[in-house]
Design a protein around this nucleic acid. Structure first.
Lengths: 355, 355
DNA sequence: ATACTGGATTCAAACGTTTGAATTCAAACG
DNA sequence: CGTTTGAATTCAAACGTTTGAATCCAGTAT
């Protein structure tokens, strides 16, 4: 049942050296051998030498598995991303997060286990497997949906874990997130400053809090400026280029089309620019577009993308640091960490392209 | 020594349920409990029921760690990338490879362990740790340098592993690679077809076989066309945008500067285009540039990048499949797999931009 | 009656580590 | 001299699993 599609035959390597052989050769107990090889101060120097010699002669190596079984510590952490592999790695937002997590774990001599789940059905299974099989000491959960059923059980399990992204049950959860609302606020404020009043928003999937927060920032900026919110200017996408494309087409087809678009992320913004061009508009000075994320290609496209920068790498590293603190039961600054965002002005908002 | 900078205090969770408690409650041996929970056909149905009830009551969970210790199989595979985290994740070439590996492993119910090594010094340690600590069943090694000392020891260790990229010791190694030379050949042939004879190449680090192979393809195309190879038209870079920038500046400063540039990868090509623009040239029709990799931003930049597409995702998935075959001692098609590359024509070579 | 066969269950031993208990030895005390 | 203390070493037991051996029982052959 847990073996799935994996194959079974495995023809064990015959020449496995056991610790007992080493112990026998030296004439001590297995525990002594183990301790000696771990360089424990308990063992006499002379004994250590003899054990080391015998171990070297027999090519015996200490096993991290045995250590983990006994100490209940594997020194590894799982990064779980509840989406299909294709989806996850397609968004290179995730790459930076991964990089940040990896860096911190590496520095702490911990191992990173990467886990994605294909289908919703698999999810529960995958969660249970990772959590209860004791193969990892803790978990970092990246961008789960609001309605994810596993969160609740995870929360109850007292298993050490950290959440990337805000979550409604906040107060009791350890989360590392980004100021999505504030970022969106800055972005839309800038479009207002450019003199626009008919500003549309192509959002991410609103079941994710990041998308909902960005939408909230958009609305707040309009409110601030005394611009009435118009439901038809809001189009729910899914953070893809495709969504930007079709969303923009829909918006342009309105009786009174918008004159500027705030896209929920950079990939969507690319789609927006494409659709605008296809419709005869010129993205940038002619028709401002602002994105969110500041992915690596944002400055490469034409026009260079004005976008909200979020510190994705720090998001990952902060999450990893928080989790390590939990694992070592070190005092932590607070349950929640919120990182700032900032607007990066390039050409696509209509400003003179400095980059 | 192996603990590194990790912290020590860990205050074990007090309420750990042991299998002995379950066994005691039911009145059988621990082995019976373990087998019963694994749903082994050896155990009587009635016994299984009683064990399951007791286990559920006590919240006991089977441990993958115990299984691994006994069976010598962890059902996990390491992907080792011998570079700093920053470096690795910066090149999004790697992202696709990772995605491919992850997908295949996931489907086979295996776990992916990601491992990067910061410094050369750490490398040997990291290798040894992963290989001998028995925490993974096999290893996929991505883009190691030619002079990597660990390869030899890895090869001797009879540890199951697969190499991504060609390697000189080929015949005895399991490798999955891409036709770098053929791709470069196509690219430069195309520039020749455009009528150019003064074609320069900004290569990757030649200590990596992928870079050397691309250079070889470049030379072969010139030879084919009867164009003499000029050493001053070859500039060794390191696959970065920066390399493209400074390399191009150097090339343009030559007495007889080239009229077209073949960059060893897309990131370098971006730098080339920048430098060309800065020097008053217009990349594309005015001054052809061709890249290599076909990264996701290639079609987004201006002009859209003509580049050699390599199936990075397949590279990862093929490597994973090969390793799984090795682990299950299944017959394999061959020691080496070589995937094709193909030239994708967009605007930057001077062709009319169709995309 | 005894031995044998084979199926159905169960369990001891082994994998390698760490913790807590045991052992040894020397020195210090009564 | 006998006991105690303490330090220096060592080891048995425990963690949870799987393999190979053991046990039991019924049925059959000798």
């Amino acid at each position: 049942m847990t073996t799935g599609t994996r194959d079974e035959p495995l023809e064990r390597t015959p020449q496995r050296v056991t610790i007992r052989e080493v112990a026998g050769k030296v004439g001590v107990s297995v525990s002594t051998v183990s301790l000696a090889l771990a360089d424990s101060p308990l063992i006499a120097t002379d004994t250590k030498r003899k054990v080391r010699e015998a171990a070297a002669a027999l090519h015996y190596r200490p096993s991290a598995l045995g250590r983990a079984l006994q100490s209940r510590r594997t020194n590894s952490v799982a990064l779980i991303v509840p989406h299909s592999s294709q989806h996850v790695f397609g968004h290179l937002y995730f790459m930076d997060v991964l990089s940040g997590v990896n860096e911190v774990l590496n520095a702490a001599d911990m191992t990173l286990v990467l886990s994605t789940t294909k289908t919703e059905v698999q999810e529960e299974e995958a969660y249970a497997k990772v959590l209860h099989s004791q193969m990892v000491d803790g978990v970092i959960l990246a961008s789960a949906a609001l309605n994810d059923k596993n969160i609740a059980s995870l929360q109850l399990s007292s298993f050490p874990f950290v959440f990337i992204g805000r979550y409604p049950l906040d107060p009791v959860l350890h989360t590392v997130s980004v100021d999505d609302e504030g970022g969106a606020l800055q972005a839309v404020r800038h479009l207002v400053w450019h003199g626009h009043t008919r500003i549309a928003h192509i959002s991410g999937p609103l079941a994710h809090l990041s998308a909902a927060d960005r939408l909230a920032g958009y609305r707040r900026a309009l409110e601030e400026a005394g611009i009435a919110f118009r439901a038809e200017y809001c189009w729910e996408g899914d953070y893809t280029e495709e969504a930007g494309l079709t969303g923009t087409q829909a918006l342009l087809a309105l009786e009174e089309p918008p004159t500027a678009i705030f896209a929920a992320n950079d990939e969507t913004a690319i789609g927006v620019a494409e659709a605008l061009r296809a419709a005869g508009h010129s993205p940038g000075v002619g028709f401002p577009v602002v994105g969110f994320d500041d992915l690596m290609f944002a400055r490469l496209v034409e026009p260079p993308l004005t976008t909200v920068h979020q510190p994705m790498r720090e998001l990952g590293s902060a999450a990893a640091r928080l989790l390590l603190a939990l694992l070592n039961s070190r005092p932590i600054d607070g349950l929640q960490v919120q990182l700032p965002t900032r607007l990066v002005i390039r050409g696509s908002c209509g400003c003179p392209s400095s980059a």
